[in-house]
Amino acid sequence: MEQLVYSKPESIKDDFKISFCPGCDHGIAAKLVAEVLDELNVREKTIGIASVGCSVFSYDFFNVDIVESPHGRSLAVATGVKRSKPDKVVFTYQGDGDLASIGIGETIHSMTRGEKVTAICINNTTYGMTGGQAGPTTLLGQITTTTTKGRDPEIAGYPIKICELLKELEGTAFVARVSVDTPAAIMNAKKCIKKAFEAQLKGLGTGFVEILATCPTNWKMTPQEAHERVRNEMAQVFKPGIYKDKVSEAE
């Protein structure tokens, strides 16, 4: 007798449109968020906040209500939504440029206030949608369209380590950095995303997960080479792991 072991999550629309480039980890990350919403059975009361960047297309595939925010202001919009509708589950889906550069003020202040929301950040070390400019997390020596000879700390400074920064804030309840380059890593990423939502559901504070992702188009690599880069270069600078976990402590 055949048994169904996997099917598209209900939190992804039936007529979904995934307009990312081939091999982009955005698709995997979005699917994980959708699977977690299904497992926690909160799809009906979830409000997503779409940001600016490749993540803007959230409303094309997430089967939840979505509010589009101005560039970088996702967590400010999430604050407003959550405070006016405290019984809803609110999450933001942002890129590193949105969360850590343009919106770092909103990010730090909303997490210092301990807003009961969940933030998912896709860190691909570049501004993917606008054509691969240097972002806040661009690695030293990385060639982008605005650092054509590689990122030089004398000129462009150092990459921001988002998790190390946000774990120090009193308001965050769960901070983790994960990758999605192998099936095992994907399963671990899902556990972390689930905890980030539990931090919100239990009212402990902000849940945050940074996902090390690829941008094969702007890195000018195949999806396979891009995953090698995540393992060999990105994971050396941005160490994956759980940085703060008040969810397990509370249990």
Partner: peptide, 19 residues
Amino acid sequence: GCAMCAKVCPDIAIEKVYR
């Protein structure tokens, strides 16, 4: 029917896995 392909597919082209 391990569903690894469906887990890594970024475009949800593998919609269902049976075992």
